[in-house]
Structure formats: C-alpha cells, structure tokens
Design a binder for these strands. Structure first.
Lengths: 239, 239
DNA sequence: TAGTGGTCTAGACCACGAA
DNA sequence: TCGTGGTCTAGACCACTAA
C-alpha cells in the first residue's frame, strides 16, 4: 500500500498509532486506562515494538504513564515551570480584561543597548512600540518593546495587533523562551503620571529578551505598578 | 551467566550500555561522536533495539543527539529553566561571598498564614529562622524562613547550618521546585536600618514556597535591596 | 490464572550524508 | 559506495497485578 501523505514519503506507523491514542485519550480524565499494547498490536496489525515506540513518545510528553503489571493510563498533568505568556494571556489567566493604548509605534535606528540586546548592529532598523497597558480598565504597566525590523517586514503597515505574541505567532516568531530580569524601583514623575501613581511609589522594572531557537526576537522594558502586580513563578523539576 | 548486582535481580543490558556510554562521553566536548549503534551491538553482543533503548534514554536526558545519516554525538548542554538555588549558591554563582547573621532562630506556633502555606494546622510547631544576609560584606536581604518542625527533628539542637538547603539536602528534604511570588515595595524603617538604606528606599519582596514531591518543606519571606539585587530568570522550553 | 508492561533477540529495508 | 540512524517485524521470557 502506497502513501503520499507526507512530503518525506510514507506515513510512519508509530506516528499514526501515537496520534490515534492521543485522540482517544484527549478527553479522558487522569487515571483512565489507555488501550493496552497488545490491543493496539491487534488493531493496527503491527509489531509490539512499534506500538511501544508510539506510547514511549506519549509517556515522554507526560500524557500517559505506565504501571507495570496493570496497564497504561492517562497521567495527571505534570506541574511545569512557568510558561512564556504575553501580557494579554497573563491578565486573562488572572481573570482581568486586558487592554492597551499605544503611546509610540514607529521605526527607529537601534541605539547601542538595544542593538546589543537584539544581536544586531547599532543603527539597524528596529520597531519601537510603547504601550500603556490596562487590566480591568486601570493602568497596570508601561511596556516598551523593540523588534528587529528585518524579521518583521510590513509589521508597521498592518493594523496594530492586540497581542504582540499572537502577531509573532502568526509569523512563527513567537518566543519559545525568555530571559527576564526584574528589580524594584521608584516611579519617575512621567511613569507615575501615566500609571496613576504618586511620584516615588514603588514599581517593578522588568527587562525581557524573548528568544526562539537562540535568535533574539524581542527586547522589552516594562514598568509595572507594584501595588497591582506580583510576579508568580514556578521553578524547578517536575517530580 | 548469573548476576546478583541489583536486589531486583538481573542487571539490565540497556542500563549497562547506557552507563557505559555515559561514562565514555562524560568528559567529551559537545559535538564529539558517541559510539555508533552497530559498534555497541558488537561490543556488548546485544540486539540493536537494546542499544537504541540505551541511547534513547541518553538522548532524552539531553546528553546525546542523533544526526540521521551521520551518527550520534554529544549534545551541547540544553539551556534550561532557572534552577532552584539557595541564597548561598546564588551569590557564589555571581562571584560574591555569602555570609549571614542569625537574628531569630526558635520554635514557634504556626500562625494562620504560615500554617496555611506549610499545609499544617494553626498552632503546630514551626521553626522560625530570620537572617540578615550579606554579599561581599554588604547587607543584601532579610530572610525569614518557616519550616515544619515535624519534618526536621533535632534541627534546633545542631549548630545552625550555613546553607539551609545543604542542611535540608542532608535529610533528603531539599526542595526540588519552588513557587515564588515577587513584587516591589518601600523599605520599612526597621528594614531600612538593617539593610543600610534610608526609609522609603525601594526593595524587592519575595515569598517562596519550597516543595519536594508536592509536600511543602519551606515557606519564606525575603526583603531584598533593590539597588543590589535583580532577579534573573529563564522561562520556557529548550528548543 | 490471565493480562499487563519490561526486556530482549536477530534479523530486515529505508533515507541520508560523506567520501 | 558505505556507514549511519529511523523504522519495523514476529516472536520470546520475565515480573508483576488483579481476579
């Protein structure tokens, strides 16, 4: 039987089995049994090693767990480290409505600091996007993002997207990991005015480098109201 | 040939091969070739699937990477999320000498907040340990840790350990993951005095729950000088 | 006792990369 | 062309769990 589905050639049996089981199990609760290995051998007419290869992948993903002598079961989702979220995702996740107001959106020449952080040359074109971000209508933070213009042709011509990360995602440029640096400081008069604070109120300063496959996609500086924002992170393994 | 090495019985061939390769490769630089699968088949007199099982484990650990058509090679260490570090580890890693001065170390009854956070009952015995922490001789932070006394019998009788995490490690209670919450604030007069700041200077407040296998080991509150401390974290996948 | 996952064999053909 | 990893077969015996 020939197969022309994937450009690379044949459909792989272990992939077919893996996706079959993934779909079967998608809506099951943790602890529900998955098909046994021998059952899948029968269903797909395949060697047991092939079934095991498929299940190994799902076990590696944390979707399934094996219990020797008992069977294979849907695993409870593993606690994981804090994922990379956009402001919008983060606020939505906390039950707030995220809005934002663009203060600056234009092409500039990269200064030395931004060039260094983005891994480009000083004077190269960068997109600078400064926004005042609200949660449930109240000002929350000032965010200034710098993007490498070369990676984002036509970015300025489109309507300003609501979520930067969604827009990057549509170009397959959503950062998959970030390096954040955070500290505390006092609000400057301008910041205080934008954020509705008195000058000298405490703020969180956050710098971010967003990367994908070791390429810097995004560099940003944010100033957040300390009275409304706490960073919550989970670090460490998943035992 | 009989084998009595492991209490469970036989030595597993794939484990033996895995550890053999791990040792071989331990001191190699990234990019160095690992033995080919067929070479290991010959050396161990074993089926190729068995060799693959051993190598799969090492690939899963990120120690090796396969390059189809070329071979198997030592992988460059994967960038990982920020590990769980003690204050001592963290300062040492940044090139500072870590010291600390105990302000309070005694048994108390858990208040409602601490009891909740530790997952015990209000009034249960907790160890409270408050320290002023220095880096290179200058005050850096005030840290207050609460520990479940039941898990740490005799903790107060011993000499106060330098590193809490080392002490916990010796009892197999070192947290393997932590939930941190951080925000910015202004130093109280007492904090300012201890930290050598003027009152109203910005500080970072960090709350931590340290866990091991879903059991809360440690709860802490720290106040850090914002002018000397920035939190650096890496989040996200490892592509 | 019957079923499960864990381990293991001794082959096979394929696509790919380097020489 | 030759060696590599990727896939796959059709069995086997084992320890363990649950009925």
């Amino acid at each position: 039987m020939e197969n022309v589905l994937s450009p690379r050639g044949r459909a792989l049996k272990h992939e077919a089995i893996r996706e079959y089981v993934r779909r079967l199990v998608a809506e099951e609760l943790p602890g529900a049994p998955a098909p046994s290995e021998r059952e899948l051998v029968g269903r797909f007419g395949v060697a047991r090693m092939t079934v095991r290869q498929a299940l190994d992948a799902l076990v590696g993903e944390g979707l399934l767990e094996r219990k020797p002598g008992r069977g294979t079961f849907v695993a409870r989702p593993r606690r994981s480290s804090t994922p990379v979220l956009s402001f919008t995702d983060e606020m939505t996740g906390r039950g707030f409505a995220a809005e934002s107001q663009t203060l600056v959106l234009r092409l500039e020449q990269a200064g030395p600091g931004v060039a260094e952080a983005l891994g480009i040359t000083e004077g190269d074109a960068v997109i600078r996007w400064r926004r005042l971000r609200h949660a449930d209508g109240a000002p929350m933070s000032i965010e200034e993002v710098f993007l490498n213009e070369v990676l984002l042709p036509g970015f300025l011509k489109g309507v300003a997207p609501t979520s930067l990360y969604d827009e990057l995602g549509s170009r397959s440029l959503r950062p998959t990991w970030v390096q954040d640096t955070m500290t505390a400081d006092l609000a400057s008069p301008e910041e205080a005015s934008l954020l509705g604070l008195r000058a000298g109120a405490p703020v969180v300063r956050k710098q971010r480098r967003g990367l994908r496959e070791d390429k810097v996609i995004e560099v940003s500086r944010s100033t957040l109201r300390a009275d409304r924002y706490a960073l919550r992170i989970t670090l460490g393994g998943s035992d």
